[in-house]
Design a binder for these strands. Structure first.
Length: 574
DNA sequence: GCCGTTTTCGGCCCGACTGTTTTCAGTCG
């Protein structure tokens, strides 16, 4: 079982948790957490870096000691420091920390005083009323724990960005109706366009006398008010989604937006920069002593620490601050840069709309071209096209292109990559198409070597143009298949083919870290809707968000090209 | 445990809300 960065990061997080329970040096604890974050955001596996003889201490937050621990974990699969800590207390304690309302101090007290070291033991103790007898614990805390432990069992995880949008957008409209409210902005990971969000962070600007907090708790979707003060409140919606609201005055908008957008590690770095300049940054502004020197806009916050504005999608503390300092921030791709969409289905296979309906809907979105890429025959559940039906569709597309104005349909296929790397349709048919998207739809469980070779072999095919949803993952539903993306991206460069960034909210595949790798190798990415209906073109916005998180510029995207240039890149002149 | 425009020691981001206690610790974001 090869060790991945996420495995190492989890070990470091567990060490940090246990050290925290033991009341160890908080900065030592933070060091472990920083290193875990660095590992999670890394494009390459630490294991690969070590094999290449790279010096891990060059990574941010990783010094001599932690580099050695990474080496130990990679080679043995274990970490003696963690084992020792687990022997000193109990491995289950880290589970207790996940229960809302329980931090290291309370977990320690429960362990020391009542010998509680699992959520199950805690549940029994709360039911028996043994908790409120402890110093620092009262009746309310005991009730609180009992409630949270029940929801912990059926703990709702993060939700997909597109689903969060369905809850967030009506709530924003509702909040805007409160007296005195000027701006309502969704910040947090939602604004950073993360694939999933854990909660909604909503920033409101309003006068100090605004009734917006009372307005909020009367929203008919609110199921529970967790906390409510004058400037801050937390509620749970009926869907289970947590909403944190922060109200500030208009002049604090920039500083508050920066603070509330995160990521936390990015904000910490920015505040450290401020410290060096004898400044203090909080959600109300940038301060020199008691004097407020910036904070009206986010740009003014960055300028106060001698940086240009950094777009939210980049704020993950994975190199954006250094890039900003050196003037090397990317000029991120925007939705309006897209000229076309290279992956769509119709009623010919598993789509819900006809060729013409899809073409008109794409034109409505401002697109100049749309590739029709049905499934191929191997994918029988989707009524994939065989040679005869594909050629019929090619004819229909040519007829429709003569009729349509302002949009051009391209002839394509989403052809299955078979187990041995062959494509599901013959060369003499693929030859008649403008583009061939290759896709893995079966045998997700192949070994890393076999899966990688299967795809590499398909990419060697002379007609292969784009690799669809390259890792095959379905967010929160199916893990990516085990595949060596380094090799795939290098192959794409050699062969002059492209990688899809599938914009479907459940896929968002390429992952942002692979976008960065593609960019570094000079491989163009195609942001495709994979539309199965006319509404699905709206999903392109999530693809754009993902591409921006992957630092991609307009020039890094295949389908920002006007049609003549695109045709050249596809290697077809017909 | 990491790090260096205060550089090998002495720092390490900042504030709101709750509950328990009575001035603040704990937790969270």
């Amino acid at each position: 079982m090869p060790i991945h960065n996420a495995d190492i990061a989890m070990i470091f997080e567990q060490i940090a948790d246990l050290l925290e329970i033991q009341d160890d040096n908080p900065f030592r604890i933070r060091a472990y957490r920083n290193a875990a974050r660095t590992l999670n955001g890394l494009g390459k596996d630490a294991r690969a870096l070590l094999e290449q003889g790279e010096d891990l201490t060059k990574l941010p937050g990783i010094g001599k000691d932690l580099a050695a621990k990474i080496g130990e974990i990679v080679s043995t699969g274990r970490c003696r420091t963690l084992q020792k800590l687990q022997e000193q207390s109990s491995p289950g304690l880290t589970d207790l920390l996940k229960i809302p309302g329980l931090g290291p101090k309370r977990v320690r007290a429960l362990y020391d005083e009542l010998d509680i070291h699992t959520p199950e033991q805690l549940y029994r103790a709360t039911r028996d009323g043994r908790i409120h007898t402890l110093p620092g614990f009262g009746e309310k805390t005991e009730l609180h724990i009992l409630k949270n432990i029940e929801s912990y069992v059926q703990k709702d995880q993060r939700i997909k960005l597109a689903l969060a949008a369905q809850y967030a957008e009506p709530l924003v409209e509702y909040l805007q109706m409160a007296d005195g409210v000027k701006h309502v902005i969704i910040a947090g990971s939602y604004r950073r366009c993360r694939e999933t969000v854990g909660d909604l962070d909503i920033l409101v600007t309003a006068g100090t006398d605004s009734p917006v907090m009372d307005h909020l708790i009367h929203y008919d979707e609110v199921n529970e008010v967790v906390s409510k003060g004058g400037t801050r409140a937390t509620v749970i919606l009926r869907s289970g989604l947590q909403v944190d609201i922060r109200v500030v005055e208009q002049q604090c908008l920039g500083a508050a937006l920066h603070y509330f957008t995160g990521a936390k590690s990015h904000n910490i770095e920015i505040r450290k920069l401020a410290q060096k300049r004898k400044l203090k940054i909080n959600e109300y502004g940038v301060f020199k002593g008691k004097e407020r020197v910036a904070g009206d806009t986010e740009e003014s916050v960055y300028n106060a620490v001698d940086l240009p504005y950094i777009p939210p999608e980049l704020r993950e503390n994975r190199g954006e601050i250094e890039a900003a300092r050196s003037g090397l921030l990317p000029k991120l791709v925007e939705h309006s840069d897209l000229k076309g969409d290279l992956h769509a289905h119709t009623t010919a296979t598993d789509g819900h709309n006809t060729l013409k309906e899809m073409a008109l809907a794409a034109r409505e979105q401002g697109l100049q071209y749309l590739a029709i890429t049905e499934h191929s025959k191997h994918l029988t559940v989707a009524h994939g096209l065989d040679q005869t039906r594909l050629l019929q569709q090619v004819e229909k597309i040519e007829e429709l292109n003569n009729e349509l104005k302002g949009i051009t349909l391209l002839k394509g296929i989403e052809v299955d990559i078979l187990e041995d790397g062959r494509l599901d349709l013959a060369d003499n048919v693929l030859d008649k198409l403008d583009l061939v998207i290759g896709a893995v739809h079966s045998l997700f469980h192949l070994s890393r070597a076999n899966q990688t070779n299967r795809i590499l072999k398909a990419m060697d095919h002379p007609h292969f143009t784009i690799l669809a949803h390259p890792t095959g993952r379905l967010l929160q539903d199916r893990d990516p298949y085990d595949v060596d993306m380094n090799k795939i991206i290098r192959k794409a460069r050699e062969r002059g083919c492209f990688l899809e960034l599938n914009a479907h909210p459940q896929r968002l595949d390429l992952l942002d870290t692979y976008c960065m790798m593609a960019r570094d190798e000079g491989v163009l990415v195609s942001i495709n809707s994979d539309a199965h209906s006319t509404q699905d073109f709206d999903n392109l916005r999530y693809g754009i968000g993902q591409a921006r998180r992957g630092w991609l510029e307009k020039g890094d995207i295949l389908n920002t090209r006007p049609l003549p240039e695109l045709r050249k890149l596809l290697g077809r002149t017909m």
